Measured scan of single mutants.
Amino acid sequence: VTLFVALYDYEARTEDDLSFHKGEKFQILNSSEGDWWEARSLTTGETGYIPSNYAAPV
């Protein structure tokens, strides 16, 4: 399992994006889409796309 942590807060701009807060942890589901990764929040259980430059490996 690849775990990442949010470096900044992010507010979803589309219904496919995932809103999150700094410090929140994610499981990365798909990182082959370039700058946007499909991720599941370990806090909320929700799935959506996150900007890859807002996350770092745990």
Rank of each mutant, 00 (worst) to 15 (best):
L7Y: 03
V5N: 02
G45Q: 07
W36I: 07
W37F: 08
L42E: 07
R40W: 07
G45A: 04
K22N: 03
V58E: 09
L3T: 09
S52V: 09
A56S: 09
S41M: 08
S41L: 10
A55K: 02
V1A: 13
V5K: 04
S32V: 11
I28H: 00
F20E: 01
I50S: 00
N30H: 08
L7S: 03
I50G: 01
A39M: 05
A12E: 03
G48R: 02
H21T: 13
Y54L: 10
G48N: 01
S19Y: 03
L3M: 10
P57W: 06
E46W: 08
K25W: 14
A55D: 02
L3G: 03
R13L: 11
I50K: 01
D35M: 11
N53V: 09
D35Q: 10
F20Q: 00
Y49W: 15
V58W: 13
T2G: 12
S19P: 05
Y8R: 08
L29R: 05
L18G: 01
K25M: 15
T44H: 03
Y8P: 00
T47L: 09
T2R: 14
F20K: 00
P51E: 02
D17N: 10
G34Y: 09
E11W: 09
A39P: 00
S52N: 06
W37Y: 09
W37C: 03
G45K: 04
E24G: 02
L29Y: 07
V5D: 01
W37T: 03
E11V: 14
L7R: 04
W36M: 11
Y8N: 06
E24S: 04
V58P: 05
N53E: 09
D35L: 12
P57R: 06
E11Q: 12
W37G: 00
S41I: 09
F4V: 10
S31I: 13
Y8W: 11
Y54I: 06
R13K: 12
E24M: 06
T2Q: 13
D17T: 15
K25S: 07
L3A: 06
P57C: 06
P57Y: 06
Q27M: 14
T47K: 10
L29C: 11
Q27D: 07
A12C: 06
G23H: 04
K22D: 01
L29G: 03
S41A: 07
V1I: 13
E46D: 09
T43G: 06
T14L: 09
I28Y: 02
Y10R: 04
I28A: 02
F26I: 06
T44G: 02
Y10F: 09
G34D: 12
G48C: 05
E38C: 15
A12S: 11
L3S: 07
T14N: 14
P57L: 08
L7P: 02
I28W: 02
R13G: 08
A39W: 02
G23L: 03
Y49H: 08
E15I: 11
E38K: 13
S52Q: 07
G48W: 04
L29T: 06
P57A: 09
D35V: 09
T43N: 09
L18A: 01
Y54D: 01
D35E: 12
E33V: 11
N53K: 13
T43Q: 09
L42K: 03
S19A: 06
A56M: 11
W37N: 01
G48M: 03
L18D: 00
A39D: 00
T43W: 11
S52I: 11
E33F: 12
S52E: 04
Q27H: 12
F20H: 00
E15M: 11
G45W: 07
S52Y: 10
Y49L: 14
Y54Q: 04
I50V: 06
F26L: 11
K25C: 13
Y8H: 08
E15R: 11
A6K: 00
S41T: 04
K25T: 12
D9Y: 05
I50R: 01
A56E: 10
V58H: 07
N53R: 12
Q27T: 10
T43F: 09
P51F: 06
T2M: 13
I28S: 01
L3K: 04
T44N: 06
H21V: 14
D17Q: 15
L7I: 09
V5Y: 12
D17W: 13
E24F: 04
D17E: 15
D9H: 06
Y10G: 00
E15C: 13
K25N: 07
E11R: 09
L29S: 05
Y49N: 08
Y10S: 02
I50Q: 01
R40M: 12
H21K: 15
L3P: 05
L3C: 10
E15Q: 12
D17G: 15
E33H: 14
Y10V: 01
P51Q: 05
L18V: 04
I28R: 04
Y49F: 13
A55P: 01
E15L: 12
F4C: 08
D16K: 15
F4D: 00
Y10C: 04
Y10P: 00
V58Y: 13
D17M: 14
G23V: 00
K25P: 06
E24C: 06
D16Q: 14
T14C: 15
P51D: 04
Y49M: 14
L3Y: 13
N53D: 10
L3F: 12
S41E: 02
Y8C: 14
H21N: 10
E38N: 07
E11D: 10
W36R: 15
T44L: 02
T14I: 06
V58A: 09
G23N: 05
E24T: 08
Y49R: 15
D17V: 14
F26T: 00
T14F: 15
L3I: 15
A12T: 03
R40H: 06
S32R: 11
S32L: 12
T44Q: 02
Y10E: 00
E46R: 15
D9E: 06
T47I: 14
W36A: 05
L42A: 05
G48V: 03
H21R: 15
D35K: 10
P51K: 06
L42N: 04
N53P: 06
P51S: 05
E38G: 04
S31C: 14
K22I: 08
K25Q: 12
S19W: 03
F20R: 00
F4A: 10
S31R: 14
S19C: 05
R13M: 12
R13C: 13
E24N: 05
A56G: 08
T2I: 13
G34P: 14
K25G: 05
